[in-house]
Design a protein around this nucleic acid. Structure first.
Length: 337
DNA sequence: AAAGCAGACAACCGCGGGCTT
DNA sequence: GAAGCCCGCGGTTGTCTGCTT
């Protein structure tokens, strides 16, 4: 079957998104919800193809996204999961709910791969990654930064690469807003700020659009009601805070979607509970050593990510059986990060 | 101070899968 | 069952930034 182009190549804008485009996209999704991407460009007037709109939303504008500063725990999880799943970035991302597949993929390609290579050449020149099956992502296995533990769960990763992303400059004033021609990288934070005035102009029904997982494990965005006092954070309070582990990030993401009509009280409660649960989980993950973080995530996401417990079981079985599986093999390797 | 280089990340492209007609 | 359509994924590229020379 002949596949039509996803968009008309002529007149389709490419390159970095401007704040104005972000606002248009976000406001449209606020109103209609994500999905039906095909209709987004035509309905919004954006000169972008549907794919570009979807990508922009899922990788950047969507609430709940955590950017930059991969924690050692996250790094360990990525390495571990990559070893098990291969380059199935979407699958890996499903176990790191705040991270996008693109983010993980980029991080793998730019950081972890190199660490692995360095490790390979420096310490194990004889150990060739391609001795692993190609679909298991291997390199990772060889270089897993994890130290083994009795339960086989990632426990400790050493990582010195916590430099903040140079692209996380929040555009907080109108002058930067107007400078749309320069390279622009927005975040849920600065988009929230961009929309601040726009939101104030709207009636105070305060519905929220937040992400939740559907029963099959994928994420969907839903619009729910939210009480006026349920949100949030003073927008400019943490302008220069580069700590992307801040659980308030999720709240700020939520705050982006205020002021829509409709929404039930049940949804309000659900939204609040979800937000609080998320915050608690983030606190736990960030404050602890990562020793039981997979379990924590499993519990907190028991409604969001049903496959996680299955995966966890698999991890545990793999490591506990000691039958020469990849997991065990990688666990035996010395940490390199 | 300027040029070159490498790193980092956003965005694009093409393909495959799944759903609908 | 075939065709059309849409969405999501993974690989790759383009561009900006920061560092080094």
């Amino acid at each position: 079957m002949g596949r039509p182009p996803c968009c008309d190549k002529d007149g389709v804008k490419k390159g970095p998104w401007t704040p104005e485009e972000d606002i248009v996209l976000v406001s449209y999704i606020q109103e209609h919800g994500p999905g039906n991407w095909r209709s987004v460009p035509t309905n919004t007037g954006l000169l972008r193809c549907s794919k570009s709109c979807r990508l922009r939303w899922t990788n950047y504008l969507r609430p709940g996204i955590k950017r930059g500063n991969f924690t050692p725990h996250e790094e360990g999880m990525i390495i571990h999961l990559q070893a098990l799943l291969g380059n199935k970035w979407a699958a890996i991302a499903s176990y790191l709910p705040q991270r996008t597949d693109n983010d993980i993929k980029n991080y793998w390609n730019t950081h972890l791969k190199k660490k692995l290579n360095r490790y390979q050449t420096a310490e194990q020149p004889h150990h060739h990654f391609n001795s692993y099956p190609s679909n298991t992502g291997v390199a990772a296995a060889a270089a897993s930064s994890t130290t083994s533990s009795s339960n086989g769960v990632i426990t400790c990763v050493r990582n010195n690469n916590n430099s903040p992303s140079p692209l996380l400059h929040a555009t907080t004033n109108s002058s930067s807003l107007s400078a749309s021609s320069c390279y622009y990288a927005s975040s849920t934070e600065n988009i929230s700020r961009l929309l601040e005035g726009w939101m104030r102009a709207s009636p105070k029904t305060n519905n929220k659009l937040i992400r939740r997982s559907s029963e099959h494990g994928s994420c969907e965005d839903v619009v729910v009601g939210m009480e006026d006092d349920a949100v949030v954070e003073e927008p400019n309070k943490d302008d220069n805070d580069d700590d992307d582990d801040d659980p308030l990030m999720f709240k700020e993401g939520i705050s982006l979607y205020g002021n829509m009509d409709g929404g039930s009280s049940h949804d309000m409660m659900w939204a609040k509970a979800t937000s609080e649960c998320f915050d608690k989980e983030m606190m736990k993950q960030d404050n602890e050593d990562g020793n039981e973080s997979i379990h924590q995530q499993d519990h907190s996401n028991s409604n969001n990510n049903p496959p996680f417990s299955i995966f966890e079981k698999w991890l545990l079985e793999e490591s506990s059986h000691g039958g020469g599986g990849q997991v065990e093999e990688m666990m035996q390797l010395s940490p390199i990060f």
